[in-house]
Design a protein around this nucleic acid. Sequence first.
DNA 1: TTTAATGCAAACTGTTTGCAGCTCT
DNA 2: AGAGCTGCAAACAGTTTGCATTAAA
Lengths: 148, 148
Amino acid sequence: MNTWKKILADSGKRITRPRQAIIDALRCCDKPQSPEQVLETARQSYPNLGLATVYRTLNLFAEIGVVRLIQYDGTIRYAPATLGHLHPLICIECGKTVEFHGDDDIVDVINQVEKDTGFIVSEHLLQLGGICPECQSKQAENGKSHGC
Amino acid sequence: MNTWKKILADSGKRITRPRQAIIDALRCCDKPQSPEQVLETARQSYPNLGLATVYRTLNLFAEIGVVRLIQYDGTIRYAPATLGHLHPLICIECGKTVEFHGDDDIVDVINQVEKDTGFIVSEHLLQLGGICPECQSKQAENGKSHGC
DNA sequence: TTTAATGCAAACTGTTTGCAGCTCT
DNA sequence: AGAGCTGCAAACAGTTTGCATTAAA
């Protein structure tokens, strides 16, 4: 069974067509999307979806950990959250987002910071940005398309 | 000379009373603030400051690197940016923000990620959250005030 | 059948913009 | 003196909410 369905069911929420469409929309594209973009994409499979539902659903999904908020270009966007604690790596050319697992490594940073500041660190937000392999190739051969 | 004044002057911008008040407001409090909060604070020293000016000034300051945007509680707030590349560490109890220097340490993470993903990593966003020493003491002695 | 979830539209907040007057340099 | 900056108010965009209806369990 798909994990998000299980999480929803376990928290007493319903699995509905709109919610399916929204999850699919988030997954279809590698980029983090704004609510408006999610609406547009999701309407391809469920045409009379409403924007309010998108907002309500994204908030719900964020609460139960099915999607994650990403600070992207000064605004907050949404991307599916892989289980476990992963961090987004965003291509600054095409917006493609992949995830990486960096927790083990930043433990050192956190220990150092705790020692220096006296804080007890319990949360962290880590995002990286760079150029993905595809865009590196494109740049090398001077192409300049922007795909989704 | 204060650094922000130099940066402003060097980019051909003017040093005005409203801008002074806004910088002071950001510095008076350890917490990252919303534009509305900045307005309120800054009006204590410059009463007929307008909200539009706060927005324009914060945007300008962010562009030239005098303030930094911080994702705090789902919204984006502003804090003074210390020169050099520092990261915010935010107390989840009282909101107090201090900065730490973690670049040397996350170089390892970045190297690993580049090897794993093929990305060339050029930017990073790192924020930590936790409990500051003061709030640890307060918790220990069961106090529960929320100061600024 | 029961209650959560939805779609629509209206309300609301936060942010940007146009413009006449002001102020830094 | 002149360009940049400001305050005000109006415009705008993004997000939330109320309510009658629909659909999941």
